[in-house]
Simulated scan of single mutants.
Amino acid sequence: MKKRAVCVLSGGMDSTLCATLALKEGYEIIALHFDYSQRTQNRERQAFNDVCDALGISERVVLDVSFIATIGGSALTDSAIDVPKDGLGEAVPITYVPYRNGIFLSIAAALAEKSCASAIFLGAVEEDSSGYPDCRVEFIKAAQNAINSGIATDIKIEIKTPIIGLSKAEIVAKSIEVGSPVHLSWSCYDSEDEACGECDSCRLRLRGFELAKEVDKIAYKKR
């Protein structure tokens, strides 16, 4: 029986690389995408489907978890809060969605248990995570322990974060090396037609491409 994995795939460059690496490890992928009423929800879902098409991933699950927006507290889900475009300043920026990865991993664990999957791939990045606490290695290990203590199957689930220790430049270089369809991914927090080029995520992405001496092929309003 082929080994299976749930891959949390937002459509961003990090999760796109994770999905590519999972396939190269020989996993049969169940791609899991979340709509949580984020500003660029439609564009992210398009990127998710484009990436899945490019990688030949047919098993896809898209879930509406818009209750996350109801909880609030993030510029990504609350239109009354401006997406910051003045640099990475505060320790935990307003673009942090409270406990988002914890929620995503809990749902991914349920899907993995039901699907007899032995792994969950998550594109968490500790160094370039903008200070998000749910991207830390410590949190991922704790989540894995909690998941395995609460499932009914004998199959132990491993949360795999193959790029958690990489910088954005290393992620870009690795994407090019392994043929990850990074040109189909979407990172902008604020815009769905062309990437704004000014939000934290756009600037981290552009800086990664610059340091890796590669060209980002997506369209930007401002580079």
Rank of each mutant, 00 (worst) to 15 (best):
K2D: 00
C7M: 15
V8P: 03
L9F: 12
G12F: 09
S15K: 08
T20Q: 12
L21T: 06
A22R: 01
A22C: 04
K24I: 02
E25R: 14
E25C: 09
I30G: 00
A31Q: 07
A31M: 07
H33R: 09
F34A: 05
D35N: 12
S37P: 08
N42C: 02
N42P: 00
Q46N: 13
Q46F: 05
A47K: 11
N49I: 10
D50G: 08
V51S: 11
C52T: 07
A54Y: 03
A54T: 05
G56S: 11
V62F: 09
V65D: 07
S66I: 09
I68L: 00
T70S: 09
T70I: 10
T70R: 10
G72T: 06
G73M: 11
S74D: 11
L76A: 05
A80L: 07
A80K: 15
I81Y: 02
L88I: 12
G89K: 12
E90Y: 13
T95V: 15
Y96N: 10
V97N: 01
R100I: 06
R100Q: 10
N101M: 08
F104C: 06
F104Q: 06
L105Y: 08
I107A: 08
A108K: 02
A110S: 14
A110K: 14
L111G: 01
K114F: 13
K114Y: 14
S115L: 15
L122R: 11
E127Y: 02
D128P: 11
S130C: 13
R136H: 13
E138C: 04
F139D: 12
I140G: 02
K141W: 09
A142I: 06
A142G: 12
A142R: 07
A143R: 00
Q144C: 04
Q144K: 01
Q144F: 01
N145A: 08
A146K: 02
A146Q: 03
N148E: 03
G150C: 15
G150N: 15
I151Q: 13
A152C: 15
D154T: 15
P162H: 00
A169C: 01
E170I: 04
I176V: 15
I176Q: 11
V178F: 01
S180T: 14
P181E: 03
P181K: 05
V182R: 11
Y189W: 00
G197E: 03
C199Q: 03
C199A: 01
R203A: 01
R205K: 03
L206N: 02
F209G: 04
A212G: 01
K217E: 12
A219L: 07
Y220T: 00
K221E: 10
